[in-house]
């Protein structure tokens, strides 16, 4: 799994590429918590994700709650059907703001 972080006016955009699984989710978690820890809102671009497992989703949940605690936001963008099924399983589609694109995500956190 690769990741790229870029800073936009409204906050950080974190783009992941590859699979987020038991091996790679600790790195994804670290990146997300670091971005949240810098006090800005975050758009997580999932367009390059092939597969995300429960440990990856757990990292998203933890980062989202940490962001909320700090008065920030964290939204998901370009969520694949497979990832959406995993989110829906634990009703997390009702928890996260899910945007069609990064641009929509930036508008949502702005």
């Amino acid at each position: 799994m690769k990741h790229e972080v870029r800073e936009e006016v409204g906050g950080f955009v974190v783009a992941f590429e590859g699979d987020v699984d038991l091996q790679t989710s600790p790195d994804a978690r670290k990146v997300l918590l670091e971005c949240v820890g810098r006090g800005k809102s975050v758009v997580v671009d999932l367009s390059g994700i092939g597969y995300i497992d429960s440990s990856g989703v757990a990292s998203l949940v933890e980062s989202f709650q940490t962001a909320r605690k700090g008065g920030q936001n964290l939204v998901l963008a370009s969520v694949s059907d497979g990832a959406l099924r995993v989110l829906k399983l634990a009703r997390l589609n009702k928890v996260f703001t899910i945007c069609d694109s990064v641009e929509d995500g930036l508008a949502a956190i702005g």
Partner: peptide, 20 residues
């Protein structure tokens, strides 16, 4: 038994599965 995941990650995972 099988992973080195962070405790918080594991706790969220089990709570998600219990929700399922």
């Amino acid at each position: 038994e099988h992973t080195d995941l962070d405790q918080m990650t594991m706790e969220i995972m089990i709570r998600m599965k219990l929700e399922v």
